[in-house]
């Protein structure tokens, strides 16, 4: 497993994401978080993971792990089609900006989020927003759950195959009660 950015030229700075080498790492991060939040981009509804779409895994995970969800762009429509209502709908840079504000009380107004889980955004958009959070949200942990390495997250998968990705997502889900 390597820490090479998926887009070859998007090399990171001195501080780059640790690898999620096994699903237990992501699972533990989520368990420890008091106020986790998903930021789910439009590609989540396009990616086929065998018989499911990526967004279906997100919904299962959000429900089982009690994670609030921000839908960016038109992802909201895809959630609603699946009878899942996100906690907020806003542009990716807007939620990114709010997460850098330590006084922001989160999408439900009950306190700052301590973990942001990014998935399904265009690669370079996630790259830049995570860079903003790396530099300006020191108290926020970030995870990328895409199957490509996001160097600016705190934790990220390496560039892994779809099969491996499914296995990881299933394993995280498997640790939770249905």
């Amino acid at each position: 497993m390597s820490q090479d950015a998926w887009l070859t030229a998007e090399v990171a700075g001195p501080k780059k994401a640790s690898l999620i080498t096994k699903p237990e790492i992501a699972d533990a991060m989520i368990r420890r978080a008091k106020r986790p939040i998903f930021i789910v981009g439009s590609i989540a509804a396009e990616i086929d993971l065998e018989e499911k779409k990526l967004i279906d895994y997100i919904i299962l995970m959000a429900r089982r792990c009690s994670i609030q969800v921000v839908a960016t762009a038109n992802t909201n429509s895809e959630f609603l089609k699946r009878n899942f209502t996100p906690d907020a709908v806003m542009p990716a840079v807007d939620i990114g900006n709010r997460l850098t504000d330590p006084t922001w009380q989160g999408v439900d107004g009950k306190g700052p989020h301590d973990l942001a889980i990014f998935v399904g955004l265009p690669y370079q958009m996630a790259w830049t927003i995570l860079s903003g959070l790396k530099n300006f949200a020191p108290n926020l942990k970030t995870i990328s759950l895409d199957n490509v390495y996001q160097p600016n997250a705190r934790w990220s998968f390496s560039n892994i195959s779809v099969k491996n990705w499914i296995m990881n997502l299933e394993a995280i889900l498997g640790n939770r009660e249905a």
Partner: peptide, 9 residues
Amino acid sequence: PFYLPFCDL
């Protein structure tokens, strides 16, 4: 400004 550093250096 919401900064999105494209390079950390």
